[in-house]
Amino acid sequence: MSSLLEARDLVKHFPLKGIRAWLSAMGGGARPAVRAVDGISLRLAPGETLGLVGESGCGKSTVARCLLRLIEPSAGRILFDRTDLSALPDEPLRRLRRDLQMVFQDPNASLNPRLTVRRTVDEPLRLHTTLTTAERQDAVREVLDRVGLGPELLHRYPHELSGGQRQRVNIARAIATRPRFVILDEPTSALDVSLRAKIILLLDDLRTRLGMTYLFISHDLATVKYLAHRVAVMYLGTIVEEAPTRELFSKPLHPYTRALLSAIPIPDPDAKRERLILAGEVPSPIDIPTGCRLRTRCPLAQPVCAEPVGLREVTPNHFVACHLV
């Protein structure tokens, strides 16, 4: 299977600074670091949506920023359509950005407050195309129409828009150059419930129409279910389970996935569910447990869990990193 984007053994460590880190390094230990992303591999086929799910601090946003090289990965390779992104110099990378876009989480913070809607959406076109001003005007109008915004909003500033409109502008900016790959970084988590459904449906519709490939990052398994074809679940910088969406939701194998799923509130007061409850809170990414990273919290942990564990394919296309499966 050919892939549009592939990450191999992606690592991002943020070395700690300060006197304590220095002392620990002097003491002969390894230099302490926040191991935000600790060796993950991803593969996205053209036209598909991969959901990347995990709780805050699991490193999913760091993965996104590494893939677009908004931050430099510490190790690993990123291949985009046979181009090695991880080794690309600044200028070619900048030109390639027309194909690599991102929709940001916070619609309030991700729009420049001093730019009107027209200028915000026009900018990628100006940077990446040779269209004339008039042609770009038409293009901007067309893109806004695609995301469901009328031309009367062209000259508005972000603070004059509603939250839902802002997120649509955000999406319009990302798809203006018809990118082939778009990262959606929690695009609905700052929105109200009624808007959430609209944006999810809009994004899915745009993907099929424009033939884009999505990496959908979210902490919310419920929305991922409606948008993603495959889902990868992250915990403490690694992927613990990856499977086609339907399979993951019907047969979750990793205890972490099962715990996440069972913690989601269901709008049905009569629903009977078994809850898998993890103990305590996520350990610090500076001091990661050896072996299986979940073992300090996992209710099913056994002595064998202290041994290192990697992803293996238990059923076709269903990968799990757990000794007990």
Binding site: R65, L68, L70, R94, R95, R97, R98, L100, Q101, M102, F104, Q105, D106, A109, S110, L111, N112, P113, R114, E123, P124, L127, H128, N170, R173, A174
Partner: peptide
Amino acid sequence: MEYAEAARTVGNRPARIVFFHLLPN
């Protein structure tokens, strides 16, 4: 701010990000 990151993602050069996007704010 996220809009600074967005400006990079869209493909702006650093000088333009500083003087066109951030400075006016």
